[in-house]
Amino acid sequence: MVNCTVCDQNTGKYKCPVCRAQYCSVPCCKKHKEENCKPNQITEKNETVETTTKESQKKPEFVTEDTVPNELLERLRESKKLKEMFKVSDLKKLLNYVDKSDNPYKDVQTAMRDPLFTEFVDECLKIVDPLQNQQDF
Rank of each mutant, 00 (worst) to 15 (best):
C24Y: 08
C24F: 06
S25E: 08
S25A: 10
C29H: 14
C29K: 15
C29I: 01
K30Q: 12
K30A: 08
K30D: 11
K30P: 00
K31M: 07
K31F: 07
H32K: 06
H32M: 06
K33I: 09
K33A: 11
K33S: 08
N36K: 13
C37R: 08
C37Y: 06
C37G: 05
C37F: 05
P39Y: 04
P39I: 08
N40L: 07
N40R: 12
N40Q: 10
N40S: 12
Q41N: 03
Q41V: 15
I42S: 04
I42M: 04
N46D: 06
N46T: 04
N46I: 00
E47W: 00
E47T: 05
T48G: 00
T48N: 05
E50I: 13
E50Q: 15
T51Q: 07
T51P: 00
T51H: 05
T52I: 10
T53Q: 03
T53N: 04
S56M: 12
S56C: 07
Q57G: 11
Q57L: 15
K58T: 03
K58E: 04
K59W: 05
P60F: 10
P60L: 11
P60H: 10
P60R: 12
P60Q: 09
E61V: 15
F62R: 13
F62E: 13
T64N: 11
T64V: 10
E65R: 13
E65V: 14
D66F: 14
T67D: 10
V68H: 03
V68N: 02
N70F: 12
N70A: 14
E71F: 12
E71C: 06
L72S: 12
L73T: 03
E74S: 11
E74K: 15
R75P: 00
R75G: 00
R75W: 01
L76P: 03
L76M: 06
E78D: 09
E78K: 14
S79Q: 02
S79M: 03
K80I: 03
K80W: 00
K81I: 13
K83A: 06
M85L: 14
M85T: 05
F86P: 00
F86E: 02
K87P: 00
V88W: 01
V88Y: 06
V88E: 14
S89E: 14
S89N: 13
L91W: 06
L94M: 09
L94Y: 07
L95F: 02
N96V: 08
Y97I: 01
V98N: 04
V98Q: 03
V98F: 04
D99A: 12
K100I: 01
K100V: 01
S101K: 04
S101C: 03
S101H: 05
S101R: 06
D102R: 03
D102P: 00
D102N: 07
N103I: 07
P104D: 02
P104T: 09
K106L: 08
K106A: 09
K106I: 06
D107Y: 10
D107I: 08
V108H: 02
Q109N: 09
Q109C: 10
Q109H: 06
Q109K: 14
T110P: 00
T110G: 00
T110K: 14
A111E: 03
A111T: 07
M112A: 11
M112G: 02
R113M: 11
R113T: 09
R113Q: 13
D114V: 13
P115H: 10
L116Y: 05
L116G: 07
F117Q: 01
E119S: 11
E119Q: 11
V121H: 02
V121Y: 08
